[in-house]
Design a binder for these strands. Structure first.
Length: 286
DNA sequence: TGGCAGGTGTCTT
DNA sequence: AAGACACCTGCC
């Protein structure tokens, strides 16, 4: 069990930011010993990543985060996963006063961090994400995990699955993939899995590439364009300057940056700024 | 019921 | 080089 007092860390903001698709909100059951949790409201999630299950909660009043994990798993996995060595306060402080929109966005969404995910899982989940909303993405991801991933635990009588390795995913036929509600993306996943399994695509090796070369490599994959490549770089390869442009960012640029967003001014944290703007604009839209 | 959801490949100018 | 267009699927 790890209890942490963290700055710039808000579980709900991160969960809603659309970076990760295997976070499940855990609601308190109405029956049983609910009384003990009444006074202090807690937000709880179950996260599956890197073949592990993490139950995590945050006290809404104190902000204190509790992770149900061993010291070893915290040191080896979760500390990096949540990017805890990065001071997001400092990154936010770099935003100049005259960029009032970005100032506002960052202060409204300052609990967001870049979650450092597994490159392979990030690539596949963002291929799936195209032209889908977040619930639909999650549903497809869970289906492929169930179809091909290893069982790593159980909750409420349901088995929990790791994200499938390239080998496991490439064992699925087109019919299997079509059963995962992937639509026209099934062929993209099929090809990517085979390429990763037979070694034609080696994401581990790609880690050593510079940003531009990595971007080109990702875009060379069938079904991967600029948007998916940038998301994969930002969340799967921790390239903080990657700047995914989607329909929301297009709206934001039209509204607030008619000359285009001055990404040069925000190097090397353009992608972090993108996350603040994306989350903020969505929050005020609803 | 048609339009849309964090796009991309393909075909057309 | 840039712009239309189709595309699976689920949801309102």
């Amino acid at each position: 069990m790890k209890k942490l007092e963290l700055k710039q860390f808000d579980l709900e903001q991160i969960a809603d930011s659309g970076q990760c698709f295997r976070w499940t909100r855990i609601m308190e059951d109405e029956t049983g010993d609910a009384a003990s949790d009444k006074e202090s409201e807690k937000i709880k999630y179950r996260i599956i990543a890197f073949g592990k299950i993490l139950n995590i909660e945050q006290d809404m009043t104190s902000g204190i985060v509790t992770m149900d994990c061993s010291d070893a798993d915290f040191d080896n996995i979760w500390k990096d996963y949540f990017d805890l060595d990065t001071d997001y306060g400092k990154i936010i402080d770099r935003i100049p006063e005259d960029d009032s929109y970005l100032k506002r966005a960052a202060s409204g969404c300052d609990g967001i961090r870049i979650i450092r995910q597994d490159p392979w899982e990030t690539l596949i989940t963002f291929i799936i994400s195209q032209r889908k909303n977040i619930p639909a993405i999650k549903a497809s991801v869970e289906k492929i995990c169930k179809a091909a991933g290893s069982v790593i635990g159980e909750a409420d009588g349901e088995k929990l699955y790791a994200f499938p390795t390239p080998e496991q995913l490439s064992s699925l036929s087109m019919d299997d993939l079509n059963a995962c509600s992937l639509g026209y993306r099934a062929q993209y996943i099929y090809k990517a899995a085979r390429a990763a399994f037979d070694g034609a695509v080696d994401l581990d090796k790609w880690k050593s590439l510079g940003d531009e070369d990595l971007f080109d490599k990702l875009c060379s994959l069938y079904g991967v364009g600029k948007k998916v490549a940038n998301c994969t770089m930002l969340f799967g390869f921790y390239r903080l300057d990657s700047f995914p442009i989607d329909v929301w960012m297009n709206k934001i640029q039209d509204k607030y940056y008619p000359e285009g967003f001055p990404i040069e001014a925000y190097r090397p944290y353009g992608g972090v700024m993108q996350q603040y703007m994306f989350a903020y604009e969505r929050s005020i839209d609803s």
